[in-house]
Write a protein that binds this DNA or RNA. Structure first.
Lengths: 237, 237
DNA sequence: GGAGGGAGATTGGTCAGACCAATGTTGACA
DNA sequence: TGTCAACATTGGTCTGACCAATCTCCCTCC
């Protein structure tokens, strides 16, 4: 078992059979051991690594499957690094904002009218939730809006990284949003600045105007940044 | 062992002792099993996951250490996904170019004169290598230049992601560069377009001009893109 | 005949103990 | 004092067994 993980993974393809849903079912672990001439313990160590990165799932009493990883594959990666103090929230938040900026610009280049409408609907929903006092739902809609930007650009690497960063920041984002809401004075329509700042982003994307999108998302982060939210974490070292 | 990986990792901190180099040495596996009330096999499955993401290293006959992950932690992640066909080179290349674009812009905001000089030296070296006919060394210098952009911005998330993407593209990049060099006609100084296109990036960064940096890096990718390099890969499904 | 349920098979999850392999440590010997 | 062999430490692997969740199939009962 001194192969690289990718070499090991490739071997598994030949030791599996296709399923109707597009995944591939591996032969049972005990057979795999025999075929690869390795003990079950060593095999399971490798399988658990592949499971960790989301390309493999195991169900007791059912089987083991090779599958396309979901968008949250990188999630545990960042949350673990953050939990151990090897990344702090400031660094994660900074990366997220730079990522969203470039994605908003790219989305403005690529968005169809339908894409823009979907985005606008999400902002409308967020505003409605805020007006109704349901801040948790509003935060959900907020997250959906940002995920929507990535959906337009439709690059799996960016989507995975962004999803992972969003998870790692989730706690901080909820707290920050609650604080922002509390500090803001709603206008006549019950909208907070946090809500309305999203519309220029939608407008720019609907107009396919990358430069306007860059300005709008930048203004958004100016009043809604998570950077420097908490820097008091300490590394375990 | 139904904890999340980050919860498990946090437990380990208390079961380790600091080392002079800043890492933390875990107590032996057999003791860990007893303390965590779990079998060695199950424990090792978890440890191998942490090892995979680079926050833990194991040396036979030596010990197990918690450590800060290096910049290449995400490498196996992308290479494995690519090997299994869940990511293709086009997607990886696109992400890399968008990432480098935003990083070049940010670098232009933050770069000191010393930063810019380091970058310029790398391009000079690349040009010298090309002129001397050492295309491998030139490619190395090229990679170092792009890594240098990330060093200026100094965000560990971006650095990790970029390093991982670069690894996953390494083969493709070498091939592409060899092809580009072969197709180009050097100018009077023996410089190819691939070489000289880097200087405007350095100039923009030295001038702390983000907009110029964006234009320069975009022009760079227009003649040096890896996107659509190969799209003939097939998913194992 | 159809629905429900239980026995058994399948398969991943865990455990225990042993031995192998690499590394570090100690102390005897030249 | 330097060298090296024996031993201790520690991660790496193997074997075989049993547990737990799930599925399959057939029997029973309505």
């Amino acid at each position: 078992m001194h192969d690289t993980l990718e070499a090991f993974a490739i071997q598994l393809i030949d030791l599996s059979h296709p399923e109707p849903d597009g995944s591939r079912r591996l032969i049972p672990e005990r057979e795999l051991c025999a075929r690869l001439d390795v003990s079950r313990g060593a095999l399971r160590e490798r399988l658990s690594q592949l499971e960790y990165i989301g390309v493999l799932s195991r169900r007791q009493g059912h089987g083991t499957y090779l599958q396309a990883p979901g968008p949250d594959v990188i999630r545990t990666y960042f949350t673990t690094m953050r939990a151990l103090g090897f990344l702090d929230s400031t660094e994660i938040a900074e990366a997220r904002e730079m990522l969203e900026t470039v994605v908003a610009v790219q989305a403005a280049r690529r968005a169809t009218a339908a894409d823009a409408e979907r985005l606008r609907a999400l902002v409308d929903e967020m505003v409605a939730c805020t007006a109704a006092g349901d801040h948790d739902a509003a935060t959900e809609a907020d997250l959906a809006f940002h995920a929507g930007l990535f959906r337009i650009v439709d690059n799996p690497v960016f989507t995975m990284v962004h999803t992972g960063l969003a998870y790692a920041l989730q706690q901080a984002m909820h707290e920050r949003r609650a604080r922002a809401i509390a500090a803001e004075t709603p206008d006549a329509d019950g909208r907070t600045e946090t809500d309305t700042i999203h519309y220029p982003v939608v407008d720019a994307i609907a107009a396919n105007d990358p430069d306007a999108a860059r300005d709008a998302i930048r203004r958004h982060f100016e009043i809604h940044s998570l950077i420097t939210l908490d820097t008091a974490e300490e590394a375990p070292a």
